[in-house]
Each structure stands twice: as structure tokens, then as C-alpha cells.
């Protein structure tokens, strides 16, 4: 730091103020999760005092009411498996249809791209009926559905990157006696790794937070976290605000841990995903 410019100090203060504004909603929820449920909705901006502080009572009732631990398990299971399946299969597909140029393959490519702009509501009814008929209305079936639904964006991003890999590498591998699967696995996939991370990050953010698709496909038999949170609200009775606050904190927690652990990749992934988009 040679000379501190006055304008930079102003910007720093402005950014600091904005950061506080950005953090207030989260801090408010955390503070309220320790308050008595009757003092939450009317005075959310008041710190808990001796009368309204209830310790972890809200957490206990929230976890019990919604089956949070099982929701956490299913969310993790569905997200991790779906993302792994998506990355593996769509990278293979993208490589194949980009390298082997047939009319059918380019039609496929355009269908994948096309699927990206179709809103979920267009297919939600027919898709969930179909999942029902094909007995895909369980967590494993859901992973298959996610592969189909995530294919558009993922194939698109992978294809964009495959085009920039020199084909001579793959030709050398073929001459050396690799078959296509070996070529892909030993030569192409290692080069695709940064893109694979981007695709994994974008899909994780989507699958983890997705509400409507799993709700329509498997209902509330295997609740994921968003479904568990919405379930607290369900029905016509009044909502237990204490349990709700605790659930909100518990749902944010894994996300924050994931974010702080992989921040570098997430930021890069978002920027890279956008360039390809």
C-alpha cells in the first residue's frame, strides 16, 4: 500500500455497510432461533432476554417435528449421487456427440440446448405421472430423473469445452491401442476436470435446493430439506415459529460449510459456467 486514496476509503465504508445489510437477514434468523416461539414474529429484531431465551428447545422440537435428520440424509444422498451421475454420464455424452459428427448427434445436441429454456412447469405434470408409472418415485429413481433434467446444461457446458481440446491427443491414444472408453477415461476426462468441477458445483446448488421436483416425484415419503421446511408450514394450523427458525438455521448450516470449504471452486465455477452459457 503506497498511498491510500480517499475515494477507496469511501468505497470501503460503503461496501462494509452493504455487507452488514446483506448479513442482517441471516443474523436475525439465528438470533430468533433461540427465542421463545411467541416472541418471534412480532419482535424479530429484539435480542433474546432472560424471559424469551429458550436455549436449544426450538432445535429439538424442529428436528422432531420434521424428521430433520432423515431429511438431511436424503438431501445428501440424492445430491451427491445425482451430481456424480450427472458429471459422469453427461461428460461422456458430450464428448461422444461432439466428436462423432452424425446428423442424429447434432440433433441431440440441439435438443439438450433447447431443454435449458423450457420451464419446469411445462413438463411437471406429465413427468411426475411418468415417474409414477415407471416406479421411479423413490430416491434412486429421482437420481435418474435428475440425470435427465440436468443433462441440458451439463452437456452444453462440457461440449463447449470439448471443442477446445486438440483432437490429436485422442488420435494418439487410439493409435496406441486405447478403445474409446479408455481414451475418454485416461486422456479426455483428466483434461475435462476443471469443467467437471464447474458442472458439479452448478448442479449441487440446483439439486440441493430443489423443492418442487422431488416433492412431485416422491412426495413426503422421503423428505429432502426444502420439503421438510415447507412441511412445517403445511396444513392450516399456525406455524411453530420457533421450530421454523431452528429449521432455517439448520438448513443454512450445511450450505455455509460447503461454501466456506469450496469457495474458490464455487466462485470459479459460477464465472466459468456463465462464460459457456
Amino acid at each position: 500500500m503506497k498511498k491510500i486514496k480517499f475515494s477507496n476509503v469511501l468505497i470501503f465504508i460503503l461496501l462494509l455497510a452493504l455487507s452488514v445489510v446483506f448479513l442482517i437477514p441471516i443474523v436475525t434468523v439465528i438470533v430468533n432461533s433461540f427465542k421463545d416461539k411467541f416472541s418471534i414474529s412480532q419482535t424479530p429484531f429484539v435480542l433474546p432476554n432472560r424471559e424469551t431465551f429458550v436455549g436449544i428447545e426450538n432445535y429439538i422440537s424442529g428436528i422432531n417435528d420434521t424428521g430433520f435428520l432423515s431429511a438431511l440424509f436424503w438431501s445428501l444422498f440424492i445430491t451427491v449421487c445425482s451430481v456424480a451421475v450427472i458429471v459422469l454420464f453427461t461428460s461422456m455424452t458430450a464428448w461422444y456427440i461432439t466428436r462423432i459428427k452424425t446428423r442424429f448427434n447434432s440433433l441431440l445436441y440441439y435438443l439438450f440446448v433447447f431443454s435449458m429454456i423450457v420451464p419446469f412447469q411445462m413438463v411437471m405434470f406429465t413427468m411426475s405421472k411418468m415417474a409414477n408409472v415407471l416406479r421411479l418415485d423413490n430416491p434412486v429413481g429421482l437420481i435418474f430423473i435428475y440425470l435427465g433434467f440436468g443433462a441440458g446444461l451439463s452437456v452444453f457446458i462440457f461440449s463447449g469445452f470439448v471443442k477446445s481440446i486438440p483432437i490429436s491427443l485422442e488420435e494418439a491414444a487410439i493409435i496406441d491401442g486405447c478403445n474409446r472408453l479408455q481414451t475418454f477415461w485416461h486422456v479426455v476426462f483428466p483434461i475435462l476436470k476443471p469443467t467437471a468441477i464447474t458442472v458439479a458445483i452448478l448442479n449441487t446448488m440446483w439439486v440441493w435446493n430443489d423443492y418442487l421436483l422431488p416433492y412431485l416425484v416422491i412426495g413426503s415419503d422421503y423428505k429432502t430439506i426444502p420439503i421438510a421446511v415447507q412441511y412445517l408450514k403445511g396444513g392450516y394450523g399456525s406455524v411453530d415459529m420457533g421450530a421454523m427458525m431452528a429449521m432455517l438455521v439448520l438448513s443454512i448450516l450445511p450450505v455455509v460449510i460447503f461454501y466456506l470449504a469450496c469457495q474458490k471452486y464455487i466462485i470459479k465455477g459460477v464465472a466459468a459456467g456463465a462464460v459457456k452459457g
Binding site: F89, T90, M92, T93, W95, Y96, I97, N105, L108, L111, F112, S115, V118, V123, T126, M127, M130, A131, L134, L136, F144, I145, Y146, L147, G148, F149, A151, G152, V155, R180, F184
Partner: peptide
């Protein structure tokens, strides 16, 4: 290379 993705894509998107 293509069938797994295509099958899932057809069932989750194309046919619906």
C-alpha cells in the same frame, strides 16, 4: 456413451 443420458433425458424431459 450416450444411451444412459439419452434414456434419462427422454423420460425426464423429451417424452413429457
Amino acid at each position: 456413451f450416450v444411451m444412459p443420458t439419452l434414456a434419462a433425458f427422454s423420460i425426464a424431459f423429451l417424452i413429457p
